[in-house]
């Protein structure tokens, strides 16, 4: 996520919509992709993204710049995505998102691209086996490249808990990867 100049934050807090669009441009990719990884559904990811930006807009005045703006956005995103995931029914969660699948399919489907899309489907299936907390921790570290301190700030947990969650999530993924595909879960 790109850094945002303080004057843009101040103008946004004063209600300037152009300045708020700058914030959107700098942060929307992070927000949308984390939402997509957690909810696994493009429609839900759009809903979460809209919710996150409405929360940012409403609370920017009271933000107070006591903590890093980036950490604040991480926290709002993660909390909104996890809450949305928990509220959505089990049935909705297991539904295949065809938009997402079509986007990942390459046009001419050369072998390497097929392998890549298969490995993405496998990654998604493995991530689905994890709890939302472990999954989010791993997404923030492995895909978004956040440091332990940033993850701790985003999830509002101690550094040691970040470490433990990452370790357990990796162990669980290794165990799942070693399980034969026909083996019952």
């Amino acid at each position: 996520m790109n850094d945002i100049a303080p004057d843009i934050l101040e103008r946004s807090a004063a209600g300037n919509l152009d300045a708020f669009e700058e914030i959107y441009k700098a942060t929307s990719s992070f927000v949308y992709n984390v939402a997509l990884r957690v909810t696994r559904n493009s429609a839900n990811a759009e809903e979460v993204t809209q919710d996150v930006f409405m929360k940012i807009y409403r609370n920017l005045k009271s933000f107070g710049f006591r903590s890093s703006f980036k950490t604040w956005v991480y926290r709002i995103t993660v909390n909104t995505a996890i809450n949305h995931y928990r509220k959505s029914g089990k049935e909705e969660r297991s539904r295949v998102d065809y938009d997402n699948v079509i986007e990942t399919l390459p046009d001419n489907r050369p072998e390497t691209a097929i392998e890549q899309s298969d490995s993405q489907a496998r990654l998604n299936a493995l991530l689905d086996r994890l709890s939302p907390e472990h999954k989010t921790c791993l997404i923030l570290r492995e895909i978004e490249g956040l440091s332990y301190a940033e993850i701790a700030g985003a999830l509002n947990i101690p550094l040691n808990t970040v470490r433990t969650r990452l370790k357990r999530a990796r162990q669980a993924l290794l165990a799942e990867a070693e399980r034969r595909p026909d083996e019952p879960v």
């Binding site: 209600g15 919509l17 708020f20 669009e21 959107y24 929307s28 990719s29 949308y32 992709n33 997509l36 990884r37 493009s42 759009e46 993204t49 809209q50 930006f53 409405m54 807009y57 409403r58 997402n100 986007e103 890549q116 490995s119 993405q120 496998r122 990654l123 493995l126 791993l138 492995e142 895909i143 990796r170 993924l173 290794l174 990867a177």
Partner: peptide
């Protein structure tokens, strides 16, 4: 395992999303 994650490319944000958010902000104002 890390290679699997490295292959995960970020998806582009749908173009219409900013329009929806802007409309919601104007309605709230």
């Amino acid at each position: 395992q890390r290679l699997l994650f490295q292959g995960a490319k970020p998806k582009p944000v749908p173009a219409h999303l900013w329009g929806n958010i802007r409309d919601a902000i104007i309605a709230q104002r």
